[in-house]
Amino acid sequence: MATETASPVGEDEALAGIGLGDGRRLLRGAAGVVGFLAVWYAVSLTQDPFVLPSPVAVAGAFASELAAGDMTAALLQSVSHWVPGTMAGTGLGVAAGVAFGWSRLLDDLTAPLVRTLRPVPPLALIGFAIAWFGINDWGAAFIIAVGAFWINFYAAYGAVEGVSEDLLDVGRTLGVRGDLDAVRSIVLPASMPGILTGIRTGLGRCWMLVVASEIFGVPGVGREIIRASNNLRVDRAIAYILVLSLMYLLVDVAFRAVERRALAWRA
């Protein structure tokens, strides 16, 4: 049989384009950061350190907290909330989102409940965290899990709802039978881009929730930020905020790499 040539995806061109754009973007980004630091420094000269410390003071606070080992200890404590909270919330959120997105029955049964619970901010559940788990790592993990749950629930739900009926039809003509087979062989892979976007959004959001989850006295980066602010040690507060930002960046970059690999099939 004859074969016409595949429409080549100009990979070299595309790569070159990305390379050039990337270099320029990095340069601009660096310029932006330097500019921001300069303005921050200039303004800080006119202010008291408890209103706005200079970037140099923040760097100093960062270094001394790190050297004293306090920063590492707090980070490890926060990680011990973040990891189980994110994992539980993500796992349950994706599972529930896929199940309710796929099954009309489940969706109808839970819709009123979901709509009632959805607007409740995780922070409002601190009472439950304390009552159910206590002022400890599990209580903090619970707050984080609630945040991760909803993001993943809606991302997975929407992704599953958007799965093409045509692909399901094709699957049926090729022998796909029953919900389990359809979900496993078509619905999950087809909705994977949406699910992964949800997971990535949730991973980032959970670093923000670290602060909220430690507000009731569980030790960690979040509590250090709150404590430093209360003591008007804004330089220390900013240093710990930077820790959260760095963790977010690290996780995001790592997850993007995983995502790119998992979705290599995408145009």
């Binding site: 093409s164 045509d166 692909l167 094709v170 003509t173 994977m192 099939w265």
Partner: peptide, 20 residues
């Protein structure tokens, strides 16, 4: 009474599984 593998069905828009 329902889809069967005794029929091979081909659609206009191909509907290939993009992840495979």
């Amino acid at each position: 009474t329902g889809p069967t593998t005794d029929m091979g069905v081909v659609f206009q828009e191909y509907h290939l599984f993009p992840w495979l």
